[in-house]
């Protein structure tokens, strides 16, 4: 399988006044990969993801996303990515279908295309019956799946998921990861931040952050092997201890 670099970051630094949120981050993400960004709250995950999405400007460093420069080509980057935040970001007073149509519309998709593709999507999610229900009337698990499907509705090259499973029960989380796998199989790169270590096991590659720095980066298996432990929880624990002590 040919693997092309889709996100390339070298020495990314982001400072807020004197506080260094991202301290010389460097990593590469390959096409079709599920890339997990791990760390405790305040480790700098969200700052980094915001920079990659063009929501925030880096202080310095070399960053290319989907082949575009993060300083000068943010417009092109925005067209090539999808984004889902921890709040699911659907409009509660719009119906399921209206949400799909709205987000499809702001990505400039054609009305005909939106119509046929949303039929297919609703069918796949088993939501055809509730297409005209308001979001506030459907359960959280469904909202989350819908939010994710909308984030990849315009076929982006990369989808960024910022703690997508916060506040969701374990069963729904499993189903959600199934959806992520399907998406990665269809060739969309998935960049996901989380602080659930069991989710890290699902990733092709994980990058553990602490206090603004990358402290470990490899596939889950290699990390476990390297630290001589059996699960990611322990890996994280060891990594965290190394940094602190």
């Amino acid at each position: 399988m040919e693997r092309d670099v889709i996100i390339e970051v070298k020495d990314l630094v982001k400072k807020f006044d004197h506080f260094v949120a991202n301290d010389h981050l460097s990593f590469k993400v390959y096409g079709g990969e599920i890339f997990g960004f791990l760390g405790a709250n305040g480790a700098g995950k969200t700052t980094a993801i915001r920079i990659l999405c063009g929501l925030s400007k880096p202080t310095s460093g070399f960053i290319r996303v989907a082949g575009y420069d993060a300083y000068s080509q943010t417009e092109q980057i925005k067209k090539s990515i999808g984004y889902m935040s921890q709040k699911f970001s659907l409009y509660e007073d719009l119906t399921v279908y209206e949400n799909i149509r709205f987000y499809g519309g702001i990505y400039g998709l054609r009305t005909e295309y939106i119509r046929s593709k949303s039929e297919e999507l609703l069918h796949r999610l088993g939501m055809t019956e509730i297409r005209n229900k308001l979001i506030k009337d459907i359960p959280t698990g469904w909202r989350q799946k819908l939010a994710f499907s909308i984030a990849v509705f315009h076929n982006p090259r990369i989808v960024f998921l910022d703690e997508p499973t916060g506040g969701v029960d374990p069963v729904t989380r499993r189903q959600f990861w199934k959806l992520i796998y399907e998406t990665a199989h269809s060739g969309i790169t998935v960049f996901v931040t989380t602080h659930y270590m069991d989710e890290a096991e699902y990733c092709d590659k994980v990058c553990i952050m602490s206090e603004g720095k990358i402290v470990a980066m490899d596939s889950p298996d290699k990390l476990k092997e390297g630290f001589g432990v059996t699960n990611m929880d322990e890996v994280f624990f060891k990594v965290a201890r190394n940094v602190t002590y």
């Binding site: 925005k78 990515i81 935040s85 409009y91 702001i106």
Partner: peptide
């Protein structure tokens, strides 16, 4: 508050 603003800002709008 809803977090939809971020999604809008990430979009090509």
């Amino acid at each position: 508050e809803l977090g939809t603003m971020e999604v809008l800002l990430v979009s090509p709008l």
